[in-house]
């Protein structure tokens, strides 16, 4: 299972916001066991999608000199019974960021309907990173060119 829950980054603005897309298909690995009679996209996978995309915005905003790992989420709502077969737009915003940590918020919409929202997420920063490696990964995952 490739634990990646966005397919492309569609817009990114340093220090501010990021948008990306993710198509939820019937072939997703996480649907094995969730459930056998009805396929439902797990709510926590949507939380992960928001956290992954916003995490990249933080890394990008700090010029790939750190990595960001979720340490707290608060006030999260997800629709629990979504059948796959839709394309979602994920949006994340930085509320504040420092060398030590970042605070942000995110949401997922399908057409004009919000299917998930995450009103407060805190990331801890880790500075033991290789920027070149992070840039390569970001380019591969996002579809954007940095260099």
């Amino acid at each position: 299972m490739r634990f990646l829950f966005y397919d492309a980054v569609t817009n990114i603005e340093k220090g501010k916001s990021i948008t990306g897309v993710k198509s939820f298909s019937l072939s997703e690995e996480f649907l094995r066991g969730h459930y056998s009679k009805i396929a439902m996209v797990p709510g926590v996978i949507m939380i992960e999608a928001m956290a992954q995309l916003l995490g990249w915005l933080i890394i990008y905003s700090h010029d790939f000199r750190l990595t960001a790992i979720m340490s707290l989420i608060e006030d999260v709502t997800v629709i629990s019974n979504l059948r796959p077969g839709f394309r979602a737009e994920i949006r994340g915003e930085i509320v504040s960021t420092s060398r030590r940590d970042s605070l942000g918020m995110a949401s997922i919409c399908v057409e004009d309907k919000c299917i998930a929202s995450l009103n407060r997420i805190i990331y801890s920063h880790f500075h033991d990173v290789q920027p070149e490696e992070l840039i390569k990964r970001f380019e591969y995952y996002s579809g954007w060119k940095i260099q």
Partner: peptide, 11 residues
Amino acid sequence: FLITKVHKCKF
């Protein structure tokens, strides 16, 4: 049970 809201989750 299906989760719909997370009030707070700390790692």
